[in-house]
């Protein structure tokens, strides 16, 4: 349904080009839920903004050769007037911070009715009724009265529900959720994730979930892409990625966070060093300065290593090779944690 090919997005700054997204290809199937995992600066948000054509150009620049095809239409060079028929209607997006994404001086009803009238051509009365139904669908009590409220009169979780109601108003084919729960408390996060899951089931919407939290994608997605420094490090089905991670960065991420489902280690494994500098990208694999498995050939960008089915890791090293592991352990790498190992044994 959505096919992104060799997407490159650079930002022009006084100091030079920032390579925010640097050659990313992936696809989203009908009804599928895809997770994009990465830390700040990995390019995950710029990727989603490019799909929505919401990047400010300049300073952003989508480089030649990039392609984003949605239902047979190329979005990269689409006229803005055409794009408006897709944005909100076919592809909708929810953002991290619902307070800054909602208009503070308009009632929730005005903001909900806008997409209904614009995209679906509903009359005022029809739109009002539909708006109330939408608020009820996202679990906001007393919907009729709440329609007349302003965003600041809602709590953070409720605001995020309003955003979701607006996003699904025109029954989009694809919902892009960019860190939808990062600003929320855990108990509210659980509510919102459950809501997104339920809507996906009921409406058959495809979901692209962008997050830094591996825990969130574990329960929410069918397939995952791990991004690092504007590039894809590894991609696999969700079960496969957690059971059989093959990129040293994925391995590092999985063991660098303390986890409730594991024995408590005396000391956490760290990923040494700092996040990459996208202004001065290094030759070859961007993870090499922090990687315990690093080899001389990492100075060249690694080819795709096909593991099984759609599982691909961009790494020169076979991290399951005992010799490579021994070498990495001398550099302080601790192989998969206890539960990881028992999990592997079971599956």
């Amino acid at each position: 349904m959505l096919e992104v090919k060799d997407l490159k997005v650079y930002f022009r700054t006084r100091e030079g080009n920032v390579h925010a997204v640097d050659g990313v290809s992936f696809h989203v199937d009908e009804g599928e839920s895809l997770g994009i995992v990465g830390e700040s600066g990995s390019g995950k948000s710029v990727t989603s903004l490019s799909i929505m054509r919401l990047l400010q150009i300049p300073p952003a620049q989508i480089m030649d050769g990039s392609s984003i095809v949605f239902q047979d239409a190329e979005l990269v060079d689409m006229e803005e007037s055409e794009m408006r028929k897709i944005r909100g209607r076919q592809i909708a997006m929810i953002f991290q911070d619902p307070m800054t994404s909602l208009n503070p001086v308009l009632t929730v009803e005005r903001q909900l009715i806008e997409p209904l009238q614009l995209h679906l051509g509903l009359s005022r009365g029809e739109a009002h009724n539909r708006a109330r139904e939408l608020l009820e669908a996202v679990g906001i009590p007393d919907a009729e009265r709440r329609l007349r409220s302003y965003p600041h009169q809602f709590s953070g979780g409720m605001r995020q529900r309003v955003m979701i109601a607006i996003a699904i108003a025109a029954n989009p084919k694809l919902l892009i959720a960019d860190e939808p729960t990062t600003a929320l408390d855990v108990t509210v996060q659980a509510q919102i994730l459950e809501l997104i899951n339920r809507l996906r089931r009921d409406l058959g919407t495809s979901v692209m979930l962008i997050t830094h939290d591996l825990g969130v994608v574990a329960g929410m997605t069918d397939r995952i892409i791990v991004m690092y420094a504007g590039k894809i490090a590894e991609t696999a089905s969700t079960d496969e990625l957690f059971a059989n991670p093959r990129h040293p960065y994925t391995l590092g991420l999985l063991s660098a966070v303390p986890r409730l489902d594991e024995e408590r280690p005396t000391e956490l494994q760290t990923i040494p060093g700092s996040p990459p500098d996208q202004l001065h990208p290094i030759e070859g694999c961007p993870f090499q300065p922090r990687c315990p498995f690093v080899l001389p050939q990492c100075k060249q960008y690694p080819p795709a290593r096909k593991i099984a089915g759609n599982h691909v890791a961009y790494c020169w090293v076979d991290v399951t090779d005992p010799e490579e592991q021994k070498r990495a352990m001398q550099r302080g790498f601790i192989p998969l944690t206890e539960i990881g190992r028992s999990y592997l044994a079971q599956s």
């Binding site: 509510q191 825990g215 574990a218 079960d239 986890r259």
Partner: peptide
């Protein structure tokens, strides 16, 4: 409510919402 980075656990968990 804490998400756990393990799809197998996530699938069988019962959450108190």
């Amino acid at each position: 409510a804490v998400p756990i980075a393990n799809p197998r656990v996530e699938k069988q968990r019962k959450r108190i919402i």
